[in-house]
């Protein structure tokens, strides 16, 4: 089973890297550095909910490292790593709180955390606390981008969950947790 799991993680990482690199080719409509759609985060969200936090961490770490190498922007590695790490931690904490129909919220909070981490790294690197004035703009971008990728992730998870047993036949997913995700929201 270990092999299947590694293959599945590698597949997710490949998807994340492809999304990341394709997104880089799209001209940025917003002239503020640090705002982008963050399509690659979609994969992190899906892995976090569908697989396990450990899988998500591995996918995220490899994607950030290879993504920075492939795009040739090693300065971005620092910002991505800081943002990605904070995003991961926050999503990990919130994972048990959201239901299957609230994954968009999980992703939006992750997007916000990503921007906060990025900003913290930028301030630490440049030693310019004045950079904080960009935070509100970044937060708007992070929230909106997170909402959209989160909705996409939510649809994807709904379609992928029935297929998962075919990829990981004997994986014993946590029953209680699964129930939690299938709980329908009444409000």
């Amino acid at each position: 089973m270990k092999t299947r799991r590694i293959v599945l993680d590698a597949l997710f990482t490949a998807v994340a890297l492809t999304l990341f690199l394709v997104e880089l080719q799209i001209p940025n409509p917003v002239p503020v550095a640090g705002i982008k759609l963050g399509l690659a985060n979609l994969v992190t969200v899906v892995a976090m909910v569908l697989l396990s936090p450990l899988d998500a961490l591995a996918i995220l770490a490899v994607r950030i490292l290879l993504g920075s190498l492939f795009s040739g922007n090693m300065m971005a590695l620092l910002y991505s790593a800081a943002g990605g790490a904070l995003c991961y931690v926050v999503m990990l904490l919130l994972r048990g709180v959201v239901t299957a129909r609230q994954i968009w919220a999980l992703s939006a909070v992750g997007g916000i955390a990503h921007n906060v981490g990025q900003m913290a790294a930028a301030i630490a690197v440049t030693r310019t606390p004045a950079l904080i004035v960009y935070l509100p703009v970044l937060l708007i971008g992070g929230t909106v981008a997170g909402l959209f990728t989160g909705l996409a992730a939510q649809f994807l998870i709904a379609r992928l969950r029935p297929l998962l047993p075919r990829f990981l036949p004997t994986q014993t997913t946590n029953r209680g947790e699964k129930k939690n995700h299938e709980e329908s929201e009444t409000s």
Binding site: Q102, P136, V137, L139, I140, T143, E185
Partner: peptide, 18 residues
Amino acid sequence: MKTRSWILIFAVLLAVCS
């Protein structure tokens, strides 16, 4: 958490940031 409260949180956050 209710979906409605999530929506409220993000709406307030977006408004404040704007």
